[in-house]
Write a protein that binds this DNA or RNA. Sequence first.
DNA 1: TTGAAAGCGTTACCAC
DNA 2: GTGGTAACGCTTTCAA
Lengths: 342, 342
Amino acid sequence: MRTRYINTKGDDIISVRIKDIAKRCNVSEGTVDRALNNRGGIKEETKELILRTAKEMNYQPNHLARCLAKGKTYTIGVIGINLSNTFFSMLIESIEAQARKKGYFIELILTHNDKEREQEALKYFSIRKVDGLIIFPVGRKEDLEEVLLKMELPIVSVYNRIVCGKIVHIDVDCKKIMRNAVSYMAGKGYKKIWYLDWGIERLQEKNINIFSLEQRRCGYEEGLKKEGLGEPSVMVRYDEERLLSIAGTDIKTAVLCPCDNIAIKVLELYKRKGIGVPEDIGIMGFDNIEMLERIYPKICSVDCKIRTIGQRAFDMLLSKINNEDNIHDVVVDYSFTEGETL
Amino acid sequence: MRTRYINTKGDDIISVRIKDIAKRCNVSEGTVDRALNNRGGIKEETKELILRTAKEMNYQPNHLARCLAKGKTYTIGVIGINLSNTFFSMLIESIEAQARKKGYFIELILTHNDKEREQEALKYFSIRKVDGLIIFPVGRKEDLEEVLLKMELPIVSVYNRIVCGKIVHIDVDCKKIMRNAVSYMAGKGYKKIWYLDWGIERLQEKNINIFSLEQRRCGYEEGLKKEGLGEPSVMVRYDEERLLSIAGTDIKTAVLCPCDNIAIKVLELYKRKGIGVPEDIGIMGFDNIEMLERIYPKICSVDCKIRTIGQRAFDMLLSKINNEDNIHDVVVDYSFTEGETL
DNA sequence: TTGAAAGCGTTACCAC
DNA sequence: GTGGTAACGCTTTCAA
């Protein structure tokens, strides 16, 4: 069935093929191809004629056919989680940018932290014959390892790791960061550090991959131990009463948050209640999202170099696509950002 | 050239085709196709054998070939602006969701407000033979009309309109909303309303399509006229001094912002300087982004039903793809959100 | 410098 | 029920 379109006038249009141009120019398809993809071995005159005719006929190459013939799509699949979380949307934005730069394009599927959707997405991409895949895993090893390996496709995972040592991974080292964040806060004189792991329960219930959040929490605990700051004090929900009760006490206290959105909410609570930050309590976030620029006082956070992660994620994938070897996990650098909440 | 892959062991793998299954099962390709796409006219026994063999051989259909044969890709192109702006990322998220629901997938290209990138994206999609296109226009009529019509493709534009009456458009009616916002504020007793059009100059310089922002500004001006609130008072940059000087005066004053991000920044300024909101000055935003939930006092804003826009944008496109007629521009409903800054 | 024909992997149709 | 084969539109190779 030939490819058809309906144009704006309602006419049924049949798209122009190489064959059509060839016929019109009285040459063979091969010659047209030579002209169109300016390969050599063609008389300048014929080439010009062909190009002119192609333009006249409004020829648009059929990418599907081309890919089929060439065995390469110049498309990578991205299985993301969502775009509501700024961290994710920035990451995907930077993957897209880097891909474009290198002549690739992205197909995007979002899982919204749903394992089933993730499986669907995988099925989809293995059919699409994308050249490679960047995945923000939702499933765990038992959900993903087999399927991913079966795909026989270059794959890079970002954010959550699939703990199996077979899928190349890139992210910052969340555990180390949080450990160091605790030390950083201890260095500023904080004796009591709370951790606000808000939202974790809902994710745990779904039995999905929460590697990154686990690492952060674990880093916090390790940091406490290292600094001799006692047992972990974790809140797993946003509890205003509790948050208020820990502020302005004798012990110099702070709240460490696994992401900036939570930190913002905490800060606003304290501001609303007239509690001084950082006088009565310190706050530290994670991600350094753009919104922090607009909010006062500037929240101390961790710059995870999101753009670098995205860019390098694509570059790693590209290396795999090009069969380069020695592609290993990448740990991206981070830095604590200047702020006024500690 | 047959499609090849490198598997994780480093072997050079050749992907399994229908032909291979047919050979192994001693049947024809047609029969395999019948089994795989469970069409009728096949003995249950053969079908089972084929399906089992396909699974054993880890057969993955080639989507490219399938699309080429069927003349349909079940993929739509999305030309977005960026994902940093929550408004856009949410919109794209909802387009993706609706597409998935209807069995379609999206390819995403971001323009970052660059006309050239937009042209590249268009070229890309006209080659890819996507089934349809959703575009957040960056160019104006003179940049886009001809190219878009030439693509002979179902197209829907969102956010900025291409003022030519030939491309179906969907958005809220920004002009009307802003006009009514002014009335809404006037109804609350505000006598002086400033408009903070921060960022507009940079966009104007680029000579790009700023339909939506123009509409908002224009609505503001119309609203003032309607309410008899005097001449427009517009700031085109974020000017702290100016913002401070207009607060706490005898006349009940407010700042109307064309987007929430600006409103947040203004609110934080006033909070930092100890200026009461809404006592000394009122603030109104636009978009009702999620972040507003976390910030105190809750900023009065406009809920533009982003999810509805995204969903309906896709549905409109689908109607066009399916050749339904009577597809007209859609104006999505809005509502003012409850807040504490007016 | 050009033409002819054989792929790429599916689908669809007509014969048996 | 099944097989054979011509599309789909492009690339590539071999011959002329």
